[in-house]
Simulated scan of single mutants.
Amino acid sequence: MTPYHNTSEKGDYPWWLVALAVIAVIIAIVIFANDLYAQVFTVVAAGIGVTVFVTIVGFILATTLGLGIALMALSESKVLRQIARFYTEVIRGVPILVLLFYIAFVGAPGLVWLINAICSPLISSGAMEPMLVRDISLVWRAILALMIGYSAFIGEVFRAGIQSVDRGQIEAAKALGLSRYQRFRLVVFPQAIRVILPPLGNDFIAMVKDSSLVSVLGVADITQMGKVYASGSFRFFETYSIVAYIYLILTIGLSLALRAFEKRLRRNEFR
């Protein structure tokens, strides 16, 4: 039996996309034609900005930290490799929701205590006010939790991509006298990024969906706005239908953009 992804490469017409587009248009017409749905959409859509902000900032930070973890895992130092493996296994074993609660209500107070302890001479002299837990907003606590939670998975993506580069090319670059940094920048990373980008894009889409978990902290994202409206109006069907609709538009739109980018990347690779 031919795998699905192979048949799609042969040019099967994307009827699933047509069906989704038709459904999306019908729902959009209903939203703008019905006052109730229009009101729900207006309220829920107010959280799109927060969702996008949390996702983009969280993903950038997670990617940066994940790259650092991957480089530690591939380091010649045994200590760094063990630290990277310990971090990856522990973080991957904790659910994102639990991590959100832990960072918000344990990590943030701990960080404030540490900062105040380090700056205690300045605080004692009156040159600096002691930091309070409320100084770290719930939005940034949520971003930190997503950063830590996803960095472990992204680190594994980077590690696998870097290890996919042929060892012979690295040895050839070494024979040419390139430094370790030059080998990574000029030889390893340009080839590894082609392997890394597809799963990295999938992690970004997954973070868009997992960003809905920040609503448990009261962060005013799409899910939280829907939760507040539904609890006050008891319009659960209408509200969560709109919430699901907005998330589908975001995730499917990103998925299509990533597929188009991957195809363009493959075409450039075989030119």
Rank of each mutant, 00 (worst) to 15 (best):
M1K: 10
T2L: 08
T2I: 14
P3E: 15
Y4A: 08
H5M: 06
N6A: 09
N6G: 10
N6P: 00
S8E: 12
Y13R: 13
W15H: 05
W16R: 14
W16V: 09
A19H: 06
L20W: 14
A21M: 12
V30D: 08
V30M: 15
I31C: 05
I31G: 03
A33D: 12
L36C: 02
Y37N: 05
Y37C: 01
V43L: 02
A45R: 10
A46K: 10
A46P: 09
G47M: 00
I48Y: 03
V50M: 08
T51A: 00
T51K: 03
V57C: 04
G58W: 04
I60E: 03
L61I: 02
T64E: 06
L67Q: 08
S75Y: 11
S75M: 06
E76V: 09
S77K: 08
S77N: 13
K78T: 13
K78Y: 11
R85I: 13
F86W: 13
E89S: 14
V90F: 13
V94P: 07
L97P: 03
V98Y: 13
L99N: 06
L99I: 03
L100D: 00
L111C: 05
V112G: 02
W113K: 14
W113C: 01
L114T: 06
A117T: 11
A117P: 03
L122Y: 08
G126M: 03
G126C: 02
M131F: 12
L138Q: 12
A145E: 04
M147N: 02
G149L: 02
G149I: 02
S151W: 11
A152D: 09
F153Y: 15
V157K: 12
V157E: 14
R159M: 10
A160T: 14
S164T: 10
S164C: 04
V165C: 01
D166S: 07
R167G: 00
A175D: 01
A175M: 14
S179Y: 07
R180N: 10
R185S: 10
R185V: 06
F189T: 03
F189H: 04
P190F: 06
R194E: 10
V195F: 02
I196E: 07
L200S: 01
F204I: 00
I205R: 07
A206V: 03
D210R: 05
L217D: 01
L217M: 12
V219Q: 01
D221Y: 00
T223C: 02
Q224W: 08
M225G: 08
A230L: 04
G232E: 13
F237L: 14
F237I: 15
T239R: 05
Y240V: 07
S241D: 05
V243E: 08
L248M: 13
L250E: 00
T251W: 12
G253W: 08
E262H: 06
K263Q: 06
R264V: 02
R266S: 11
N268G: 13
F270S: 15
